[in-house]
């Protein structure tokens, strides 16, 4: 149980490596008619799964924040801590890979009028705010309440991000999986599915490790107080 997080992380990393290998060696390439930069399209195999993993992290962030705020559940606070870090890491991966792909495909890395790009970036910045903010404050009820409030309200952006390309197609392409308008080749879809499963396992592993880390940090603080009382 102690090493479950590490085992899952390793399994996820292996799956992600497999996804990368399949994406380069097995999945079909795209044509110049469909894409401005066919080679850069292969960013897709990690960009999309990292976005999925980020959305999962933000959802877990919401659950942890809400349960801490209303139930004062210690486990929930550790979930808030771990999922904010996971959201930051995967969000950054998605935004960075997306801007590079955007530069290659659209000629510009960013579009300030595209809802999905901006709401997703906002969620990533929210995670950064939570991670850095928590490190700048002493742990306590005021810190936890304040940051879990941000975690709860920030979740409003998640459905907005998800549905953005279904409602407005400004720059970011619309959904290609699970819709009748989707045009994804089945082999590409398979590689993408392996990627999504791998990243899911990876992020769950990371969150479990992160929660264990949060537990260790709290335990260390408690022991330090106990030791100081003793001396």
């Amino acid at each position: 149980m102690k090493r479950l997080g590490e085992v899952l992380t390793l399994a996820g990393l292996t799956g992600a490596g497999l996804t990368l290998w399949l994406g380069f060696t097995w999945a079909p390439s795209v044509t110049i008619e469909a894409f401005e930069s066919p080679e850069a399209q292969k960013i897709f195999y990690w960009h999309v799964p990292s976005a999925w993993a980020a959305m999962l992290s933000f959802s877990l962030l919401f659950i942890g924040s809400t349960m801490w705020f209303f139930k004062r559940n210690q486990w929930a606070w550790r979930l808030h801590v771990a999922s904010s870090e996971a959201g930051l890491a995967t969000g950054l991966m998605c935004v960075v890979s997306g801007t590079i792909w955007g530069a290659a495909e659209w000629g510009i890395p960013w579009d300030w009028t595209d809802i999905r790009l901006n709401t997703f970036a906002m969620l990533t910045l929210l995670s950064l705010f939570l991670v850095l903010g928590r490190r700048s404050q002493p742990d306590g009820i005021e810190t936890r309440d304040t940051f879990s409030t941000f975690g709860m309200y920030g979740f409003l952006l998640v459905p907005l991000t998800y549905f953005a390309t279904r409602i407005w197609q400004i720059r970011h392409p619309g959904p290609v999986v699970g819709t009748s308008e989707g045009s994804l080749n089945s082999d590409m879809g398979l590689v993408l599915l392996i990627g999504a499963i791998s990243f899911t396992i990876l992020i769950i592993g990371h969150i479990i490790s992160g929660m264990r880390l949060a537990h260790l940090e709290l335990r260390f603080e408690d022991l330090t107080s106990k030791y100081e009382e003793l001396i």
Partner: peptide, 25 residues
């Protein structure tokens, strides 16, 4: 929203402000 914190000025609140570029754009 951050005034309850022990050190409200240490929090990088400006990280949340880029979203405000969106309404302008």
């Amino acid at each position: 929203a951050t005034l309850r914190l022990a050190r409200p000025n240490a929090v990088m609140l400006r990280l949340l402000t880029p979203i405000l570029i969106l309404p302008w754009a």
